[in-house]
Nucleic acid binder design. Structure first.
Length: 203
DNA sequence: CTCTTGATCTTCT
DNA sequence: GAAGATCAAGAGC
């Protein structure tokens, strides 16, 4: 059950440490739901993510390192930014350990901090559309390739643990054709800020 | 509401 | 040359 999409600022927990990401990517991904992501003080609550791992063919790291995906093969706790369809930027958090080439794609935020700045960057959009997709949230937060390979526990990035118990829903990942059946998409149950609805029994 | 299309970077065939 | 971890705008229902 979700409140009105006004500027309700949920409580913010303690900063996440880099060790948070040194676990199996399928554990980290659902744990990120409800956390707060800020870049230069602008951002919101993570409501949708997807997990990727080099052992499955949908991952950029599946075919080994390239200039683009090199940071995925490095240690956990860093950003991996890539260009999508030649136009957009998308943001990942690298997980597990060096060589795992595992990462969590951040797909949607509920905006809570710096909403006027997000509107300026995105143009005239209702709050629900500001960060409801991986390319949208990067535009709203001013993220580009300049933010690639940055540590997740130091400026300009800030990540805060969630404070309340939440319900996480799962589904198949969006926009892929390989390994399309893996249920590696995670979302905040009932959130109106996700990129596409989660289709589960109760919705 | 759904469907189609253009934008044009990185990698692979 | 083609596909892809996307998005917005326009056409049609």
């Amino acid at each position: 059950m979700v409140q009105k999409p006004r500027s309700t600022s949920p409580a913010i927990g303690k900063p996440l440490k880099c060790s948070f990401f040194s676990r199996n990517v399928l554990e980290v991904a659902p744990d990120l739901i409800g956390a707060t992501l800020l870049v230069n003080g602008v951002g919101g609550v993570i409501v949708e993510v997807e997990a990727y791992h080099h052992t499955e063919p949908a991952a950029h790291s599946y075919r080994g390192p390239t200039p683009r995906n090199m940071v995925m093969f490095g240690p956990a706790g860093f950003t991996y930014i890539y260009r999508s369809y030649g136009i957009h930027w998308c943001m990942n958090f690298v997980c597990e350990k060096e060589g795992s080439a595992a990462a969590v794609l951040i797909r949607a935020l509920q905006p809570t901090h710096g909403i006027p700045a997000m509107r300026r960057r995105r143009g005239l959009h209702d709050e629900r559309s500001l960060c409801s997709g991986p390319g949208k949230l990067c535009e709203a937060l001013g993220i580009s390739i300049a933010h690639n390979a940055l540590p997740l526990d130091a400026p300009p990035i800030a990540l805060y643990r969630r404070t309340e118990a939440i319900d996480v829903v799962t589904g198949v990942r969006i926009g892929i054709t390989k390994a399309a059946a893996l249920p590696w998409r995670y979302g905040l149950k009932g959130s109106k800020f996700v990129s596409k609805p989660f289709r589960t029994a109760d919705s």
